[in-house]
Structure formats: structure tokens, C-alpha cells
Design a protein around this nucleic acid. Sequence first.
RNA 1: GGCCCGUUCGUCUAGGGGUUAGGACACAAGAUUUUCAUUCUUGGAACAGGGGUUCGAGUCCCCUACGGGCUACCA
Length: 413
Amino acid sequence: MKLALLTMPSILLKSLTKCSKDLEAAKVASPQYNAITRNSMINSVTLPEDEVKRRLEAGEPYVIRIKLPRQEEVRFHDIIRGWIVVHTQNMDDKVLFKSDGMPTYHLANVVDDYLMDISHVIRGEEWLPSAPLHVLLYRYLGWEAKMPEFAHLPLLLKPDGNGKLSKRDGDRLGFPVAPLNWLDPKTGETTSGYREKGYYPEAVLNFLAMLGWNPGTTQEIFSLEELVEAFSLDRVSKAGAKFDFEKAKWFNHQYLIRKSDDELAAQFKPLVTEAGFSADEEYLKSVVSLVKERANFVIDFMEHARFFFEAPTSWDDDTLRKKWKADTQDLLEGWKEALKSSNFDNAQSIEDASKVYMESREAGIGKVLQAFRILLTGLSAGPSMFEICALLGKDEVISRFENGLKHTKEAFA
RNA sequence: GGCCCGUUCGUCUAGGGGUUAGGACACAAGAUUUUCAUUCUUGGAACAGGGGUUCGAGUCCCCUACGGGCUACCA
């Protein structure tokens, strides 16, 4: 391959060590190796042919560059951006082969794509400036007829400020950027991954697909199959898109609530074990069905569901204080007694019994429900209290109720 | 600096000469759940600026501003 290119008239040689010094010596505004500066440097266009030969045989290091015409318009069509025109006077004689004999990306990608009959080159916008070079490479190699179509995608931007999204932004702002946790073997830096943060692959894929592309309808949730069906390059937008992690969470939530309780229970189980609890399949399924609506990730479940596995040891006193009235303690004590003698068949029967009791006290249940919740779960928010009671079972409910009342008696009485 | 690309609500975006400029996330309010959350409804919120072209510009052209990318013997 190297020999083949060496014979081409558009290629020139250059002494490696002197390259940068020569450019400085040429005193050009931006040191570029191009149609003008090449004439004042040591290379195969300024050296006599036999001198070039001598140096090569002497084993002098060299690189092979593309020799661009001085003034020529390079036009090519980009599927997303339309026609793009660049003049060769604004381009430079890029290195094609490094001094170690290896090709640079520019050459390699063109040769590779040609050999593999690639039809479309779809890549990030950061490649746009080198696209004209690639077009010229296809031309000089005689492959223009098989040149692929180009599509330069908009960039993913940092959520704050501007600029291309980088791995470091993730850990700086507390969200993942890589698919998986990753330890850079060179720097020892770690990058947190979507998987470890609890994102579903389908959700990430769906979210990413919507960044820079839209289906032209209001549909937002797409399976991979639907995406394949609906996607087309001509609906890709031109401007870069910032990551919106609130929306990423929303996507994950959408996928989460569509999962079956079986599946979610299975995913939750290891976390339950890890937290030092154990529960059977059925119990987990019930917990999960109550909790999933308010969680974005399975790894968030425990913070909403801890009370399903252990009685609270502390209570949200601030909220309790706001709800506390002179008769609250008394109403709750009575409610506890009422529950003791009621049946716990299901949430509805518990609710009915509770309401009957409150009516007997000529009060609405709303008056003490919030306090009730805090006594039993420690928290001021959560799923239906009656569902929770049904799941916890009568003994546990009464025990927690008593314990909680002991606490409020000390704290508020 | 030079070259290239871009610019509609805070964010992701629809829109390709005539629209009350639409949706989603987030936010706020109301309703419901006699609790919090969920849910539902409603609301605030945008065409970067200036010139053209046109009967008529978010939509077409130019300029300016701003943003981004590239400018390696990295990809």
C-alpha cells in the first residue's frame, strides 16, 4: 500500500525532524503545510529526485502527505446539512502515512470504507472539517464513483453552559455519561455508567434517539424496533443538543412503570438482600407495585419502601408537629383500638373500619391520616396507607401504632 | 486568529411564506385522592438583532451578534 501511494504524483515526502521547525521558519500565520509553504521546505517536491532516493535509502525518517492543489473548490453533499463548499487554499497537506509506516485515520477510513462497500458515513459534526479531505482522497484514489454519502450528526452538548459533552462532565454534575462504569487504565480515573445508576438500556437508547432526531409525531416512547422503523436521516436536526437529565429520568420512569411486577420484584430482590432484609416473592411484588409509580429507578425503591421491611425508628416530627392538634393523640389511640378489633382482609376493609371509627368520633379521616402515616412508616409521603396496612398485616400495624403513639406522647403531649 | 457548522419557550423539539407559533420534560395553580405522592385540568414561558425579497415572513437572501466544531505523524 505504501509503495502504491509513493508512486502517486500527489504525494510528497518530508524530513520528519525538520517539519515543525521549517514551518516556523516559513513564518506563516498559522503553520500549515500547504501548496505555498511546501515549496520552502525539504521534501520530494523541492529536492531533486536522486536526492530523495538517497535519503530514503539512507533510512531517513519521513511521512507521506497528500499534495493538495493550490486553488480548487471541493463540493460535497451532506444529508443533514446540504451542500458544503471548501476551498483547498483553506486546507493543508495532511499526513497520510506516519513515520512509523502506519496510516492516519483520514487514509484508513477511506480505504476501509471503500473496501467494505460502505454506503453511508454517519458521524459526529466534529468530522465535518475533514470531510473535504476525505472526498479528495476518494477522488485521487479513483474511487469517486463509490464514494459513500455523508451525514454529519449534531453534537451532544454539556447540560450547563456550552461545549461538547465529555466524560468528565458526568461526574462533575452527578450524572452518568458512559454506558457502564469505566476505569481508565491509563489515568486511573473512573467514569460512572448508566447501568450502575439504574438506567434501563432501552430508556437510554430511547432518550438518546430523541436528542437530535424526532419522528414528526408526538410519540416519544419508542422500542428499538419502532425506532428502526421510524428513523430517517432527513429528520435529524442540525443544531447540537444539550443533555437534559430530568428528561432522561422521565424516560427511565416510563420504562419502569411499564415493567411487570414480577420483573421489578426480581430486580429489587438483590437490593433488599443487600440491605439486610428478606421477603418472599409475593410480598416483593406487592411492595413493588405500590412503589413503582413514584420511583424513577429500581435502585430508588428502597428509599420509598424501607418501612415495608422494618419498623421506623425515627419519625418526621416536623410534619407531625404541623398536623398535631389537642385531640390528635386521643383520636389516634381510639383508632388503634378500632383497628385491633377489625378485620384485615384487604385494604378496603381496613379503610372501611377506619372510616366507621372516625365517624363515631365525628371527625374526618383526613384529620389524622397524615399523622397515622408518619407513625407507621416514619415518612410523610408514600402509597395508600390502607394498602400499606394490608400488606404489613394486623400484628405489625398495631405494634407500630403503639410504638409510634408512645413516641408522640413523649414528644407532643 | 483562520476555516466550517449552527441559532424557535429554562431544556428537547414541531414548523419548510398566510399558524391564536404546537408538543414533551421541568415549573406553578386548581381539581381529585377526606393525607403526601400518583392522576387529571389549567397556566406562565420562545422565533438572537438588523436589513432586504414579498401583498404577506419563524419559514427565502444578506449582514451583525452569539454559540459550537476543526485547526496533531489522535480519532
